[in-house]
Design a protein around this nucleic acid. Sequence first.
DNA 1: CAAATACCTACTAAATCACTCGGTTAAATT
DNA 2: AATTTAACCGAGTGATTTAGTAGGTATTTG
Lengths: 159, 159
Amino acid sequence: MRLSTKGRYAVTAMLDLALNGTQGPVTLADISENQGISLSYLEQLFAALRSKGLVRGVRGPGGGYYLGRESDEISVADIICAVDEWVEFTRCKGRQNCQEGQRCLTHSLWDDLSQQIFIFLSDITLNDLVERGEVREAARREKKAAAQAQVVGLKHQAA
Amino acid sequence: MRLSTKGRYAVTAMLDLALNGTQGPVTLADISENQGISLSYLEQLFAALRSKGLVRGVRGPGGGYYLGRESDEISVADIICAVDEWVEFTRCKGRQNCQEGQRCLTHSLWDDLSQQIFIFLSDITLNDLVERGEVREAARREKKAAAQAQVVGLKHQAA
DNA sequence: CAAATACCTACTAAATCACTCGGTTAAATT
DNA sequence: AATTTAACCGAGTGATTTAGTAGGTATTTG
């Protein structure tokens, strides 16, 4: 799992689409203006999103983009994976000295972390983000506190 | 929190140091050969690590590097923060339209994730990695399974 | 037909990555 | 003292990524 600004741009744009696309398609020009992302860069991002079926484009006047699926069927991980290539963290994959050396130790570390992040982001849908914005204060803090407690639990178990 | 190959190189090198530095300093030339990282690149990484007190250099023949602290006092997060600049995920920080718009939603998402990753990596020390390697098979798999179960628990709780 | 919009290709300045090169100090060995 | 070993230092480099510009073509609406 790779975390870059590119992926964050894509999530932000998709969230804009989820929020403003309830009645009719949203143009990239609108998103560009709303989010301060250049039009051509958005086009590149949406080409990738389209190829993965996350958005659906409608040409011509009055056209724009729809979400490709329901907003609760699109996870943040889906979006990031669509625009950011999944780079392997390993280097000695298939090399000779990766059976017992130190490399394997860090490999399992990165693998664990990568999976951890993936699971975290797979569980958050665009709809969650939309609702999170509406409910805001109370519910959000509760969720955060619960997740926090879980992480601390994981910490003590691992130690 | 930024996750790049640079940080992974640094962790790998530090782990090499923790494993091989028990009796006397370890030269960068050794680490270079062991881990397949160029000497000059290691020098750059260790300049950053040294400035943060994570390693201590000894010049002259028989010299090399020691860990700056005990291996159970150095976390993976410490290492990554030393070599990877901490880039802010936000863009509209201090801008006018970040009070209630969509941007704030993604901001809290990235902040949560970033903190999540930081906590995860802050809890893993070099010593943990060394021990993980010695106990190997049995204990390692148990730990992983336990962590996995925890993560699944977190997922269901959040959902 | 004209306009709006998606869709597509190529190019670019800036930054980062991993590395090379060519040094200079400081300490141990001879 | 001379040599060697190693840390330490700075400049530069090709490859890649980032975020953007420019200039189109294709398709649909009015």
